[in-house]
Amino acid sequence: MTRSQKRKVFNFFMKLVGLLSLALALIVLLSLILDLAIRGGGRIDMDFFTSFPSRRAGQAGILSAWVGTLLVMLITAFLTILVGVSAALYLEEYSKQNHPMTKLIELNILNLSAMPSILYGLLALGIFVHYFKLGASLLTAGLTLSLLVLPIVIVSTREALRSLPSNLKEASFALGATRFQTLYYYQLPSAMGGIMTGVILALSRAIGETAPLITIGALTYIAFLPQSIMDPFTVLPIQLFNWLSRPQAEFHVNAAAAGLVLLTLTLALNLIAILIRIRVRKSIKW
């Protein structure tokens, strides 16, 4: 073989190796999901959603878990939109670019987004649970998770605002609108799609978080529904963890079923975000 043939063969070989690893990685991850679906799928029926956890695996359900997850997500969504969008508006529209304080905030947001989630749990344990005496309540959980996903919402809102054409903004200013009026009547409505994408992605991250909620002391066994935001709670991932840490195989089947529900919710949220993004991209006709 000549040198150039050898190089071409090697190139082909590496292409094959690359494609094989790609296929293998996808197959491994997808077959893990398939395993979850097969093991857990048979366990899912109406009773599974309407029963409290039980000592008997066959009768246990996820009622308190999914209600808890729903309530925590509502609180998280409310707080995250309120604070995250506001922070993004400030950074994008009000703050002075290249001001050292702005740089510091941006650096902080990057750093926070790569912080282990369990450290947010410790923060919440120290501040919300023990200092403000909020206990291991729905409110504490919502606060903790919204701190955790804040960077996601801030970054995506800023991107959404930045992608708007600046001539319309300038037109608004030229008509005598103030900065806030411009934001309220033009920028926020136009960037809504991008902002919602960010919020939904943030929720899809928050819905699966387990460690920070265990750290604040969320209970693993709850056989009642919370009545107020100060009540103790459990969520789907914690219920899943609880079933997983029992030795009996019947509980592992429950864990698979709860995992399947959780995974479906996460993927559904992600899909909605992707669909909104595609729609937003298509609808832009300036």
Partner: peptide, 27 residues
Amino acid sequence: MEYLFEKWFALCAYLSVFITAAIVLIL
């Protein structure tokens, strides 16, 4: 009114610095 909104936005932005500081301090 405008002024209040701007202050609120700024407060939210500075929250990220507070969070980092709070994590370090509480630990």
